[in-house]
């Protein structure tokens, strides 16, 4: 055990008397996160059990589960849940798929690879607001360039309203999201691919394995911890994504892209229904929590050594 490279934590600390140092180190972080994230989230959840007026100055009144009863009977809430799930599934599959394919592509050795990697990962550095400004123009029904491409490829008689047609808005939103998000995941997956031992591929080749077999039996197991972690992160980040959806479509047209987070915001700030907005937000939090727990449960089941 004592030989070779060990993480700091295993060797350095086996003190007979517990040190207070880690607590001093962690305290500022815990206090900061506690004040700015955890305390407010507690407040928000408390608000969901009250009737709170934002403008009138009437003190909040405790109403128990009334807001939750209203939520379960609310069609708009269930539609937002479905929209959130559809959006998340679409984003996770298309972004991770694009990221994996491009990472595999960039894993080849070729001239100009560094340059190509720089170009492909550029959208990661793009501010979301700037991305929305560009894509709003590309999607524009009247003057947008996407219609030029679409009418080259498909037999369409007239320009399409990519953001105004309720059947297409989700597609357009996901399209922009792929462009903005895949670079980060591609970069991380590429590093994971490069960490897979080359000797394994050589050995498989000698054993007569084709490229698909080596992908399945060597590449995929090699990158699966990274792939799993990245899938979890993109899932919970997609659940709470706000800026790009809010600015591109505002949840419209006809609520076609209104995810739960957008609904929370609209309820609180457009309809000034503070307590009901908090209720929807709390429901979203529970949903994200359930997905995370499912992930860790699944990971433990299929890969008991991972944690």
């Amino acid at each position: 055990m004592a030989t070779g490279v060990q993480p700091l934590k295993t060797g350095a600390d086996a003190p007979s008397h517990p040190s207070l140092t880690p607590y001093w180190l962690a305290a500022p972080v815990a206090a900061y996160i506690g004040l700015i994230l955890l305390y407010p989230i507690g407040q928000g959840i408390y608000t969901s059990f009250t009737q709170t007026e934002l403008l009138s100055g009437v003190p909040p009144r405790f109403v128990g589960l009334a807001n939750y009863q209203r939520m379960f009977a609310d069609v708009a809430f269930w539609r937002a849940v479905v929209t959130t799930i559809v959006y998340t599934v679409l984003v996770v599959t298309t972004v991770m798929g694009t990221a994996l394919l491009t990472a595999l592509l960039m894993n080849n050795r070729f001239r100009g690879r560094t340059l190509a990697r720089g170009i492909i990962t550029l959208p990661w550095a793009f501010p979301e607001v700037a991305a929305v400004l560009i894509w709003t123009w590309i999607f524009s029904q009247q003057f947008g360039v996407l219609n030029v491409f679409a009418r080259w490829l498909l037999p369409i008689p007239e320009n399409i309203g990519w953001l105004t047609d309720p059947n297409l808005a989700m597609f357009s939103l996901v399209f922009m999201t792929i462009w903005k998000l895949f670079p980060f995941y591609s970069l991380v997956l590429l590093t994971a691919l490069q960490a897979v031992e080359q000797e394994l591929y050589e050995a498989a080749k000698i054993d007569g394995a084709g490229p698909l077999a080596s992908f399945r039996h060597i590449t995929l197991p090699g990158i699966s911890p990274t792939l799993g972690m990245m899938t979890l992160l993109i899932t919970i980040w997609s659940f709470r994504r706000f800026t790009s959806i809010f600015l591109l479509t505002g949840g419209g047209p006809a609520s076609a892209t209104e995810t739960l987070v957008i609904r929370v915001y609209n309820t609180a700030f457009r309809f000034y229904d503070l307590s009901y907005g908090a209720t929807l937000g709390a429901a979203g939090l529970v949903l994200a929590l359930v997905i995370t727990l499912l992930y860790f449960w699944g990971q433990r089941r299929w890969n008991p050594e991972a944690l």
Binding site: I36, G44, F242, A268, G281
Partner: peptide, 23 residues
């Protein structure tokens, strides 16, 4: 501590904006 930090990644800003505003 580690898991609480990871858990903050699930908190929706839209739910936080009003309580943080008040504080």
């Amino acid at each position: 501590f580690g898991f609480a930090l990871l858990g903050t990644q699930m908190l929706p800003e839209a739910l936080l904006v009003i309580p943080i505003f008040i504080i």
